[in-house]
Design a protein around this nucleic acid. Structure first.
Lengths: 215, 215
DNA sequence: TTGATATTTAAACGTTCGTTTGATACAAAC
DNA sequence: GTTTGTATCAAACGAACGTTTAAATATCAA
C-alpha cells in the first residue's frame, strides 16, 4: 500500500462505515456484509484487516471514538483559554459549549453519544478502555478547574456530585435531543444551542428561580 | 386456559423473560430460541401467542414497562401526599425518591432504564406509544406541581428547561449507576440513595455552592 | 363420554449470519 | 525474471436465525 497519501484506504473506509452503522443500529444488528457493502469492499476484508467483527468494533472505538473525545476535551480547553479561567461560570460554559456546540458535526455528535450510550447499557471491553483512558483524565481535569471555584465544604463527595450533576445536564441535553426537541417544540438550531448553554450555566450556578415562600 | 388463577402461564412467562433478555441484550441480540428456553416452553410459543418476535416486544413494553412507569408515577404522588405539596423542595424530593428509591426492585429499575434507553437511541413503535401515553402526561403533572413554586419569569421555555434539568439529574444518577459508582467509590446502597436524593434537591434549588469571588 | 377448542410439541423451512478458503492482482526487492 | 508480501476477490462452510407446519396433547362445556 502507498504509505498514507490517501486516507480512504479500505481499512479506513471500514472503520468509518462501521462506526456509523454500529452507532445507528447496535453491534448485533449490523452484519459484516452490510459493513463491507457500505465500504465498497469485499466481504472478507473485515477478517483480513481486523481478524473478526469484534476486533473491528474495538479498533473503531479506539481510533474514532476516543480521538473525537480528545477533540472535545481540546475544545473545552480552548474555550477556556479565551476567558477568565478562575470564574465558575466560564468553566461551566466552556464545558457545555464543548459538548453542545463543540467541534463535532451534528452527525459526529450523534454517533458519539449513541456509541457511548450503548456501552453504558451493556458495557463491552471498549467501556473499560474509555473509562480509564478518556473519562477519568477528563473528570480529573474538570475537577481541577472547578474546585478552586467551589466553596470548600470539606466534603469531597459532595464536590463530585456537583460536578456529575453539571455533566448530567450536558449529557442529557445532548443525548436526548429527539424527545427534548419534541417537548420544547423546535429543533436544535444554533440559537437554541446558545440558549441551552446559557441555561446550563445558570441552573448550575443558582438552580431554579423560586418564589420566596415556596422553598 | 383457566381464567387467571395462576399468572405463570406460558404467555406471562414469555413476557417476563422477554423483558429481562431484551433489556440486558437488546432486541436483535436475543433469539426466540433463547426466550422460549428461558421460559421453559416450546419454540413455537412466541408465534402462537404473539404472532411474531416484534409483536412480543410491543406487548412486553405495553404490559410490563408502562404499568411499571405507572407505579413510579403513583409513588411520586404518594410521596407528595405526605408532605407540603406547595413546597418546591417537597416536589423535587418526591420526584427523586420515586425514581431513585422508588417502588421498584433494583432489578426492575435496571430493566426499566435499559429498555427506555434503548428506545432513546433507536426508537421503535414502542417509543411513540410511551411518549404519548406515559411521558407527556407525566410531564404535564410534574409541571402542574412545580409551576406554582417557580417565580413567574414569563418565560415558558425557561420553565420547561428547568424541569428537564431536574429530570436529567434524576435519570442520569439512575441510568449511569455503574460509572457513577466507580467514580464516587461505593455502591448504590440505601444511605447513598438518600444522599443522592438530598443532593438533587439541593442542587435544583440553589446550584453549586460557590466562593463569592468566582461567579 | 364426546366433540370442539386451546395449547404444546418436534421437525422442517428458507434465509442470513460470521468466518474460512484458495485463487488472483500488483507492487517492491533481489 | 523470479520471489515475496500485501491486498482483494468469489465462493463456500457450518451454524443460528425467525417462522411455519401438522400432529399430539390438554382443557372443558355439553
Amino acid at each position: 500500500m502507498s504509505p498514507d497519501n490517501k486516507s480512504a484506504t479500505t481499512r479506513n473506509r471500514l472503520l468509518e462505515v462501521a462506526e456509523a452503522l454500529f452507532a445507528q443500529k447496535g453491534y448485533d444488528a449490523v452484519s459484516v456484509r452490510e459493513i463491507t457493502n457500505a465500504a465498497r469492499c469485499n466481504l472478507a476484508a473485515v477478517n483480513y484487516h481486523f481478524g473478526n467483527k469484534k476486533t473491528l468494533y474495538m479498533h473503531m472505538f479506539r481510533e474514532r471514538w476516543m480521538s473525537r473525545a480528545q477533540r472535545i476535551l481540546t475544545c473545552f480547553e480552548e474555550n477556556l483559554a479565551g476567558r477568565d479561567e478562575t470564574s465558575s461560570s466560564s468553566v461551566i460554559q466552556a464545558l457545555a459549549e464543548a459538548f453542545i456546540k463543540g467541534p463535532l458535526t451534528d452527525e459526529e455528535r450523534l454517533y458519539h453519544f449513541q456509541l457511548m450510550t450503548r456501552e453504558l447499557i451493556k458495557p463491552t471491553d471498549a467501556f473499560e478502555m474509555v473509562a480509564t483512558e478518556t473519562m477519568r483524565p477528563f473528570l480529573e481535569k474538570l475537577g481541577q478547574r472547578l474546585k478552586p471555584c467551589l466553596s470548600d465544604t470539606g466534603d469531597e463527595e459532595r464536590t463530585l456530585l456537583n460536578i456529575l450533576s453539571i455533566i448530567s445536564m450536558v449529557i442529557y441535553f445532548n443525548f436526548a435531543r429527539v424527545p427534548v426537541s419534541k417537548i420544547i417544540g423546535h429543533a436544535y438550531d444554533e440559537p437554541f444551542k446558545d440558549r441551552l448553554v446559557q441555561h446550563i450555566v445558570q441552573f448550575s450556578l443558582s438552580g431554579i428561580p423560586l418564589r420566596e415562600d415556596t422553598r
